[in-house]
C-alpha cells in the first residue's frame, strides 16, 4: 500500500508529468483555454494512460523481453498506444455515446500525446515491467496517477488562463506569450514539491 501511495504523490506532485517532467506540453497549451475542456482532456488522458500502461506492460513482458528486444520499446509502445486509442474511440462510440461525445476531439489528440508514451517508458524504467501481478498493478496505478497529475496541472492552468484572458497584459505579452509565462510560473511552483517523500 505504501508503494501505491508513494506513486500517487510522485505522479501528482513531485514528479508531475507536465509541470516537472515537461511531457505532453502541446495538449497542455492547446486545450487549456476553458476549464470544462481542460477537465475533459484530463479525464480522457487519465483513462488512456491507465489502459496504455496495462497494454504496454503485456507487450513488453510477454513479447519484447523474452526475445531480447528491449531496445524496440519506444517504437512498439507508440504502436500500442495509437491502436489502443483508436479501439477505445470505436468502443466508446458504439457503447457509451454520451462519454464519446463528451471526450469528442480529445481522444484522437491523445494518440500522439507524448505524456502517454512517457508514462509507459517511466513504467519500464522503474522496473514495473516484470511478469508479476503486483508489478502489473503498480504500472497501472502509475499510469492512472500520471493522468490525474496531468488533469490537476491542466485544470489549474486553465483556471489561471481564464482569469489572465480577462486582464490586459502589455501588447507584446498578449495571448500565447503570457500563457507560456503562466505555465512557467506554475512549473516553478511545482518545483517546490521536489524531494517530497513521505515514506
Amino acid at each position: 500500500m505504501e508503494a501505491i501511495l508513494g506513486i500517487l504523490i510522485a505522479a501528482l506532485l513531485s514528479q508531475n508529468f507536465i509541470l516537472v517532467k515537461f511531457y505532453g506540453i502541446c495538449p497542455f497549451m492547446g486545450v487549456s483555454k476553458k476549464i470544462d475542456t481542460a477537465l475533459g482532456m484530463g479525464v480522457a488522458v487519465t483513462f488512456v494512460m491507465a489502459l496504455a500502461s496495462a497494454a504496454c506492460w503485456a507487450v513488453d513482458v510477454f513479447m519484447l523481453q523474452p526475445l531480447n528486444l528491449g531496445y524496440m520499446q519506444t517504437v512498439s509502445f507508440i504502436l500500442v498506444i495509437a491502436s489502443l486509442v483508436q479501439v477505445v474511440e470505436m468502443f466508446l462510440k458504439k457503447f457509451v455515446p454520451a462519454l464519446y461525445k463528451a471526450l469528442g476531439v480529445f481522444l484522437p489528440l491523445i494518440t500522439t500525446n507524448c505524456a502517454v508514451l512517457g508514462v509507459v517508458l517511466v513504467n519500464a524504467q522503474n522496473g514495473y515491467h516484470v511478469a508479476d501481478a503486483w508489478q502489473f498493478l503498480l504500472s497501472v496505478v502509475n499510469g492512472a496517477a500520471g493522468g490525474l497529475g496531468f488533469t490537476l496541472a491542466i485544470v489549474l492552468f486553465a483556471s489561471v488562463r481564464e482569469r489572465v484572458d480577462k486582464a490586459e497584459p502589455p501588447e507584446c505579452f498578449k495571448g500565447f506569450p503570457i500563457a507560456l509565462i503562466t505555465a512557467g510560473l506554475l512549473a516553478l511552483a511545482f518545483m517546490g514539491f521536489s524531494g517530497l517523500k513521505i515514506f
Partner: peptide
C-alpha cells in the same frame, strides 16, 4: 515482431471497426 505487432493491431482495428460499427 514489429511487423507482426503492426499487422496484429491493424487486424484488431479492422475487426473493431466492423464490430463497433455505428
Amino acid at each position: 515482431i514489429l511487423g507482426g505487432l503492426g499487422l496484429g493491431f491493424g487486424l484488431v482495428l479492422a475487426a473493431a471497426s466492423k464490430v463497433f460499427y455505428v
